[in-house]
Design a protein around this nucleic acid. Structure first.
Lengths: 198, 198
DNA sequence: GTCTATATGCGGATAGAC
DNA sequence: GTCTATCCGCATATAGAC
């Protein structure tokens, strides 16, 4: 009972790392097994096929993304709105630095999506949610009078694109000051619509 | 002689499409051969291995990128500077819509880069060139007095990130108004540094 | 639950005929 | 140049013992 759960977790964790580093096709179940120190058929006790293991990890990643990009609108005020946006970016950048495998794996699922509707349907929904997060945030900011209601849709999409590609660029080993870029993005996009009390 | 060149081009073209659609590992040389209507060993007459074919296509893509992101600074003036930036984005969006395989394939090379220095070294250079294009453009704009010299480095990187991710998002089938997003990006980023003659 | 042994198939690559 | 035939290795997956 104890061991069963332990082996299961080891398979999931090892697959997560190896798939992200070598890719699905270049990572055989044998190599995962030997990395853990078990035999290949042992994996089949927990997952009925390689594809099922790949799909299982996909579900885990989907959950992770949803929790990462969610925002509690109720906590937003006129004064802390901009800070909240800054922090959203910083949190994503920190997460990316902590878990380098995350985006690598995610990018592989993006490629799978182009030839498997199982993934494309779910990813489209995630991406829509992701865009909506920014749109809802700006809409809420309008509602509480933090910003003016000008071009909010496009501005939210622009912020989402920057946010998303920052995490991608981190993978490429380009050493840029991503936090500064994100701050510049927020400042630039909002500069035209901020209310200036004077 | 005639046929030799024809077969060669068919291999390159078919591989380009199939690799982008199915991925390198999921596209066997046999499947490429049968798609063309030749036998597998015929491919080996032109390319000594599958890896060599993959690398050959990489070189083609690298050339394409370099020509796409190059800008003739000499033609830039104070009045047409912003228009030039707009057009840079429009050209990329149009190109992406014409050749959907291009970015799919490029993304696969990005993944290869994480486990093969042959690709990572070259891609790092491309990405650096890409960032420099935007930096040079803004620097030149400062020189000809089109914009003020404030935070130019970060602003150029921000524009590059948006530019790059627009082409990625087009692949995901999200139907956004990418041209508007790009215009908003240019306007937002430059709004703080433009010279307003009045 | 985890093992050894094995079935089965497909991949890259080459030999050698035409 | 392009073919048929073939080698070799490794992949997924399963049977069946412990």
């Amino acid at each position: 009972m104890r061991n069963k759960e332990k082996t299961y977790n080891e398979i999931v964790q090892t697959a997560y790392v190896m798939f992200s580093e070598k890719g699905f096709d270049q990572t055989s179940l044998s190599s995962i097994a030997s990395e853990i120190g078990i035999s290949k058929p042992a994996i089949y006790y927990y997952f009925k096929s390689k594809d099922e293991l790949i799909k299982y990890l996909f579900d885990k990643i989907v959950q992770e993304i949803q929790s990462l990009t969610s925002v509690e609108l109720e906590t937003i005020t006129t004064t802390n709105f901009k800070q909240n946006l800054y922090q959203l970016g910083e949190a994503a950048i920190s997460h990316q630095e902590k878990d380098v495998h995350f985006n690598h794996l995610f990018n592989q699922y993006m490629l799978l999506a182009s030839r498997d509707t199982y993934y494309s349907e779910r990813l489209l929904k995630i991406q829509q949610d992701f865009l909506n997060t920014f749109y809802d945030l700006l809409t809420y900011a309008v509602k509480i009078n933090a910003i003016k209601d000008e071009n909010i849709l496009i501005k939210s999409q622009l912020l989402a694109l920057v946010f998303d590609n920052i995490t991608n660029f981190i993978l490429t080993d380009m050493k840029l000051d991503y936090k500064k870029i994100w701050i510049e993005a927020v400042d630039s996009v909002l500069s035209g619509v901020e209310h200036h009390e004077q």
